[in-house]
Amino acid sequence: MKEVQSLERGIHILFQFSRKRPAMTAEEIAMAVGLPKSSIYRFLRTFTKHGLLERDALTGQYYLGLRLLELEEVVHSKIDIETVSKPFLTALGEFSGETVQLNILHGDHGICVYGVESPSAFRLAPEKGRVIPLYAGASGTSILAFMDREERNIICEGPLEQFTPYTITEPEILKRHLDEIYKQGYVITEQEVYIGSLGIAAPVFGRDQKVLGSISLSGPIQRIDEERKIAIRDELIRTAKEVTDRMIRLGR
């Protein structure tokens, strides 16, 4: 029990450091955690020995050590776009009441890696692992529009399968469509892959503004009127930006 209590005190000491307070003296740490300086010094010696804290010899202040950066790298290596996106997709699904999904770029196509299904009886169900064409539908075109221009043009030249009468299969028309998506930063499509469906999607980026995938929403056209469409679009764009910001901070 004493060992557990000591560990908790040590963790509490480390948690006193923050962006607003990156360095502190032993006296300041003791005051912050409410422990005598004699006890604080034992913790500080141990933390310094193992690289969790470092001490500035001139000021006497302690700050977080480089060993914690190594641990941070371990944490970051386990965090992928799916992990980052899940809570945001859940919130978007609750807001919209429609099916939302996360799609990632994989070679010359997209893949649905996570989805939140609409609670409505009449819905489009997300299929984890489903291959998504990049040239048709909101999920794919919101990725293709932001890919490298040369790669984009290769895909636009086809072959382009026609899924419905509304699928764009003319390369030049598709390129102009992608240019529009690029300019506005999102896409709304109707019946390009499935008859009766409406899709809204926005890209997700990583470091160097490289497109990683997209967040998309789909539902029956008759259920999403113009007012709902605008509200959902704005929330989806905000969601994609939140995920992008997280991925960039993680160096992905």
Rank of each mutant, 00 (worst) to 15 (best):
L44N: 00
L64W: 05
S39Q: 06
F47C: 00
K49Q: 15
A30R: 00
G65F: 10
G65L: 09
H50P: 10
P36R: 04
L35Q: 07
T48W: 06
F43W: 01
K37H: 05
L44M: 08
G34C: 09
A30L: 02
Y41L: 09
L58C: 02
L66W: 14
E54S: 13
F43L: 06
V33T: 03
E27F: 06
L66P: 11
S38D: 11
E27Y: 01
K37A: 10
A57G: 07
L35Y: 09
F47S: 02
R67W: 06
R67I: 09
T46S: 12
R55W: 08
P36S: 07
L35G: 05
T59L: 08
L66S: 13
L58D: 13
R67L: 10
L66E: 15
L66F: 09
S39M: 02
R67S: 13
P36A: 03
Y63H: 06
Q61T: 10
Q61K: 13
E27W: 01
G34W: 13
Y41G: 00
A32S: 14
E27C: 02
F47L: 04
E27H: 07
R55V: 09
S39I: 08
L52W: 13
K49A: 14
A32F: 04
R55F: 06
P36T: 04
R67V: 11
E27G: 07
A30Y: 00
H50V: 14
I40A: 02
F43K: 00
L53C: 12
F47K: 04
G65V: 13
R45V: 14
A57V: 13
T48H: 13
L64T: 06
E28F: 05
T46A: 15
M31I: 14
E54R: 14
V33C: 02
I29L: 15
L64S: 02
R45Q: 10
Y62N: 01
L66Q: 15
T46R: 14
L52S: 11
T46Y: 15
Y63N: 01
T48I: 07
R67T: 12
T48D: 12
V33R: 01
K49N: 15
F47D: 00
T46M: 13
L44Y: 04
S39H: 01
G34T: 08
L44Q: 04
L64P: 06
S39F: 03
Y62L: 03
Q61V: 04
V33Y: 05
R42F: 03
R55M: 13
Y62W: 03
L53Y: 08
L53R: 03
P36H: 09
L52C: 09
R42S: 07
T46V: 12
G65P: 10
G60A: 05
H50W: 15
A57N: 10
S39Y: 00
E27Q: 07
L64K: 07
Y41P: 01
R42C: 06
L44G: 00
F47E: 01
A57I: 15
E54N: 14
T48N: 11
R45A: 11
L53K: 03
T59W: 11
R45I: 11
L58S: 13
F47R: 06
V33M: 05
L52E: 05
D56S: 09
I29S: 01
Y63E: 11
L52F: 15
D56Y: 05
D56F: 03
Y41A: 05
T48S: 14
